[in-house]
């Protein structure tokens, strides 16, 4: 298991999965043009390029791997169907993320009435454990408590708190605080003004601080 296995963020470059140097990648614009002229195999390359980032976005919003896999497929199918109408003045990655966010928000709204949350057991990348341990101060650990156990509990609580946010608040939190996108990038993905992104983020953070107040003090 390596750090390359961790869910990538849209802002980060695609993980290097091979030992040998990669051949120069065909630009997105060229692949998009091929798809629009009928070459569906070019879309396969776009899928390979962005599946991890799209999956991460969807997963962080749903906290459910099954839903994330299903919604990723729905995103890809809708994107493929809409390719003839895709204007090349926008970046494909931004456009695809917008579809993923809309598909996920739609899914979350449709399933709002579900009383119980299906939170998956999180797996942590061991390479990240050192930096994670830094977060957990000695004072935060009860006598004899395993840091990893403590972390798992924290993550569970964190995910439950994120799930209580509205879909719009959740989307900005995931894209900004988890995936590291800038306000401008989020505004472009969501198709809203940058000020709206900042406002949503402010409210979302305030709600999360309130819900996690006790746990944040223990950190």
């Amino acid at each position: 298991m390596s750090s390359a296995d961790a869910l990538p963020s849209p802002a980060a470059p695609a993980p290097d999965r091979t030992k040998s140097p990669d051949p120069p990648q065909e630009p997105d614009e060229s692949l998009v043009a091929k798809v629009q002229s009928g070459d569906t195999s070019a879309f396969d390359q776009l899928i390979e390029r962005y599946k991890g980032r799209l999956y991460a976005t969807i997963y962080h919003m749903t906290s459910n791997h099954e839903d994330a896999a299903d919604l990723l497929q729905e995103t890809l199918i809708r994107a493929f169907r809409a390719m003839p109408r895709f204007r090349r003045d926008a970046r494909f990655s931004t456009w695809a993320h917008r579809i993923a966010i809309n598909v996920t928000i739609n899914h979350l709204r449709q399933n709002k009435r579900r009383a119980t949350l299906s939170l998956d057991q999180m797996e942590i990348d061991p390479n990240e454990l050192d930096s994670i341990r830094e977060l957990l101060s000695e004072q935060s650990l009860r006598p004899g408590e395993d840091p990893e156990h403590r972390l798992a509990n924290l993550q569970k609580i964190l995910n439950e708190s994120i799930q209580t946010l509205s879909e719009n608040h959740r989307a900005v939190v995931v894209m900004h605080s988890v995936q590291g996108l800038t306000h401008a990038q989020i505004a472009e993905v969501l198709g809203v003004p940058e000020g709206t992104v900042k406002t949503r983020l402010f409210h979302a953070h305030r709600l999360l601080r309130k819900k996690l107040a006790r746990h944040l003090k223990e950190l």
Partner: peptide, 17 residues
């Protein structure tokens, strides 16, 4: 608390599929 929250949220980056 702001910084703590951001660091806590950043932990999600370590989750893997």
């Amino acid at each position: 608390n702001d910084e703590r929250l951001l660091r806590l949220l950043a932990l999600k980056r370590c989750e893997k599929p």
